[in-house]
Design a protein around this nucleic acid. Structure first.
Lengths: 193, 193
DNA sequence: ACCTGAACACCGTTCAAGT
DNA sequence: ACCTGAACACCGTTCAAGT
């Protein structure tokens, strides 16, 4: 049943997960689900927990600590983008930490291998995770579902700001998110080493 | 009516903004609101637009470009935290760019003053904004409303990872978000100058 | 122990009808 | 031009009742 719920989310997005819809999928009544899981919130927690276990840390490649930390951080990002529906669900329900925890452990291990422990390691870890979160929000934001006049590129294209033409044009153009992610993350990582 | 909606959100949070609730507040029928604004989505866009205009960029202090860029970026963060309910609403509806745009213009101006134009300015701007977004998610996340077993600190406290005791303890302890924000943002800004 | 039917208190939205 | 009443198609959740 948790598995079915997970499939439903993967296939049709977080909003498709309603108690009635899931019940229909399982050929039972809505109330049956409540008997088993208690509430929608607990169901979601179970979904995230199950997905979290699947998220076994892939082997990290790279020789220098700098490379390996970048790889561990990039892994968190890629895995989240790969399972965007579940990531969104976790984000909506405040369960992102639960989902990412195994991969966060792998990151912390690489930070220790780089010589960081205690508060210094926690600082680096959180600084990196916050950065990843920011890019995740951008990556999961479905531009197509946003009203045209609320899109960043549209706003810049019609802005009357006293800025260089080339700057405005660049801000009105679409961006290369993976590249942006790498550049920014590298700066954050380097500042902590 | 948009003003009343804005007040409602500020006072009771984004979830309190339902068409029926707003109608009751205005002593009209739900359908009246539809006649005026079309849909909930358009109502939200108007709320954000109105708030956005209020968000006039405060004068930025600091002498060096580095200081002034940090001030402009911190201003975006502080203003979002100050109006957390509207920020959450904008975030939920994909209208964050619309809300923050005036303050983003101020940031872009400081980047130009530092000598960045065109694609280099766009890169710096987006790198900084993504970082702010990450910390905003952490700041607006209401820890109290998250199930205890999904909280990051709880997960670390009960983790069996092969890490130094001091590291785990540091990760299980609460963090100083403003300090973390400043350190991380400074690293990102410096990497772009 | 497991499942159902009916109900409660909500949503956003539409549409014919009134003034 | 502006507002209402009634209805539609949804939500999450509870609870007494069945096997």
């Amino acid at each position: 049943m948790v598995t079915k719920a997970l499939e439903l989310v993967e296939a049709e997005g977080p909003d498709a997960l309603t108690m009635r819809r899931l019940a229909a999928e399982l050929d039972v009544t809505t109330t049956t689900i409540y008997w088993h899981v208690g509430s929608r919130d607990e169901l979601i927690t179970e979904i995230i927990r199950q997905q979290s276990e699947q998220l076994a840390a892939r082997p990290i490649k790279g020789t220098t600590p700098r490379q390996r930390i970048m790889a561990a951080a990039t892994h968190i990002w890629e895995s989240a983008v790969e399972h965007r529906a579940i990531t969104s669900l976790a984000h909506q329900s405040g369960a992102s930490s639960l989902l990412q925890h195994p991969l966060e452990v792998a990151l912390a291990a690489e930070l220790e291998a780089a010589g960081l422990t205690g508060p210094a390691a926690a600082l680096a870890q959180r600084s990196i995770l916050a950065t990843i979160t920011g890019f995740l929000v951008l990556a999961l934001r479905d531009e197509a579902s946003i009203r045209e006049d609320s899109r960043s590129t549209t706003l810049w294209a019609s802005t009357e700001a006293d800025l260089d033409r080339s700057t405005i044009d660049a801000l009105a153009a679409p961006h290369d998110l993976p590249k942006l992610f790498e550049v920014t993350l590298q700066a954050v990582v380097d500042s902590q080493l």
